[in-house]
């Protein structure tokens, strides 16, 4: 599964790790993240991410 980079702060969403602190299980594809999910580092919304 593809990794996505936050264009605001540079955080990389890795589907293999998910975002457990915010209730996203490892193995969750970027496309399957909830629409209101935000970058755990800077709070940018999903639209601010691009494929790595």
């Amino acid at each position: 599964m593809e990794k996505y980079v936050c264009q605001v702060c540079g955080y990389v969403y890795d589907p293999a790790s998910g975002d457990p602190d915010n209730g996203v299980n490892p193995g969750t594809a970027f496309a399957d993240l909830p629409a209101d999910w935000v970058c755990p580092v800077c709070g940018a919304d999903k639209d601010s991410f691009s494929p790595e």
Partner: peptide
Amino acid sequence: LETRMLHWP
């Protein structure tokens, strides 16, 4: 008021 990335997280 959080101001994330202005200019650090």
